[in-house]
Amino acid sequence: MKTMQEEMIIAGFGGQGVLSMGKILAYSGMMQGYNVSWMPAYGPEQRGGTANVTVVVSERPVSSPIVQEYDTAIILNQQSMDKFEPMVKPGGILIYDTNGITRHPSRSDIAIYTIDATAEAATRGLSRMFNMMILGGYLAVKPIVTLDSAIKGLAKSLPERLHRTLPDNEKAMRLGGELIRKA
């Protein structure tokens, strides 16, 4: 039997919560007993620059935290689309927010999903939780961890003073699950 192993990249602009999404996934995977690794591109990136993180969640011990072919790519800007669309494994998944995307993905050998998280989060007053909508959308498509674990993972990675935002974050995650669409 093939064991569960998810090798994924989350890529976008610094400040979008890319690294945080990866951290929440790693935390929740770890709490469900999986082996995890979280490897950021830690360059001089900051708000406005590009940011990405490679996350591996696996039943087996993670050999390499560095991978160049992904089961899933979550793409949040055009530069990342150009760079990472070709690196999704055949049969893999690409999820993207249409906001700011001018050249849409064209591969036919992968499953492509869209989620208008930026726009939806803004109209619902959840702008700062747009990354949680994406995360919820991803977990609806590929439930490698349960939503409950993801919420616990979020609580683990948020400082105490921000725990009052947990209900809204949970709302955003659930909403993301409803909003994601097959392209």
């Binding site: 770890m30 995890v36 690794s37 979280w38 490897m39 830690y42 993670v62 935290p65 560095i66």
Partner: peptide
């Protein structure tokens, strides 16, 4: 190295 220093694991 920068990989082992920057990566997160259990």
């Amino acid at each position: 190295d920068g990989v082992i220093g920057q990566m997160m694991e259990r």
